[in-house]
Amino acid sequence: MTTMTKRNRNRLLMKVGVILGLVAGAMFAGFPILWMLSSSFKSNGEIFEFPPRLVTEDFSFGAYLSILTDPTKVRFFVNSYVVAIAVTLLTLFVAIMAAYAFSRFEFRGKRIINVVIVSVQAVPPITLLIPYFGLVVVLGLYNTYPGLILTYMVFTLPYAIIMMTGYFNTLPRELDEAVRMDGAGSMTALWKVLVPIAVPGIVSVGIYTFMIAWNEYLFALTLTKTEDMRTVPIGIQLLMGQHSYQWNEIMAMSILGSVPVLILFLFFQRYFMGGLASGSVKS
C-alpha cells in the first residue's frame, strides 16, 4: 500500500471517529431537550406510557393552551417581562455612563472602584439574600417590582460596565473628543455621538442583562410572596408543587419560559459566543 492511500484511509477513519463522537455528544446534549419538547405535546396520561414514545400519536397543543388561557400563569410571564425589561433599561443607562467615565477619563479612586466591580461578581447571592430580605422589608419593597428590579442590578451591573467599557475602548476617542472641543458638554458627547455608534455593543450587553434577569431564581423566590408577583422560574416550580403533576403543562411552561432566551440566542448567536468566550457571563 502506498503512503498516499494509507494517509487517506487514516483520514477517513479519523473523520468517522469524529462524526461518531460528535453524534454521541449531540445526543447527550440534545436528547433531554427533545424529550421536553415531545412531552409538552403529549397528553398527561401519555407521559409515563410504556414503552415511552418520542413522537406522540395524538399530538396536541392542549398543554400550551391551558397555560396561555390561565390568567395566573400568564401573569408569571407578564411579571418576568416587566422585571427583565426594566432591569435591562436601567442597567444599560447606568452602565453606559460608568463605562464612559472608565473609558474616557482618569480619576482618583478609579482603581478601587474597578477592583470592587470585578470582585462583586464573585460574591455569593445567598450571602446578599439575608440582608436584602431585611432591607427590602424595611423599605417597603417586599413583594414589589422595584424590590426585584433593584436587587437584580447587583448581578447585571458589574459585567455590563466591564463589557461596555471594553466596547467604548474600541471606538476612536477623536469622535467624542471633537464634539467636546466644539463646546458641547460630555453628556452630548456621550449620548449624541458615542452611544449611536456603540449600538452593537449595547445590544449584546442588553441581551445578557435580559437573560440574567429572566432566569433569576433565588431573589424572586425570597423577595416575592403572592402569586401575582411571581416570575416564570418560580411559576414553573409552583406547577411542580401541585398535588397531581401535570407533566405536559410543566414541560410546555418550561418551553414557553425558555422561548425569549432561545430567540435572542438564535438571532444574536455571534454576540453570545463572543461574550461567553470572554468569560464575563455567569453560566
Binding site: P233, W247, I250, V261
Partner: peptide, 24 residues
C-alpha cells in the same frame, strides 16, 4: 450545527433544567 446543539443546555434556566431532569 453541532455547536448550536452543544450549547443548548446552557440556554435553559435552572428551574427548567430541574423539572426536566425530574421527569427524565
Amino acid at each position: 450545527l453541532f455547536r448550536t446543539v452543544y450549547i443548548l443546555p446552557w440556554l435553559f434556566t435552572a428551574a427548567v433544567i430541574a423539572v426536566l431532569w425530574r421527569l427524565l
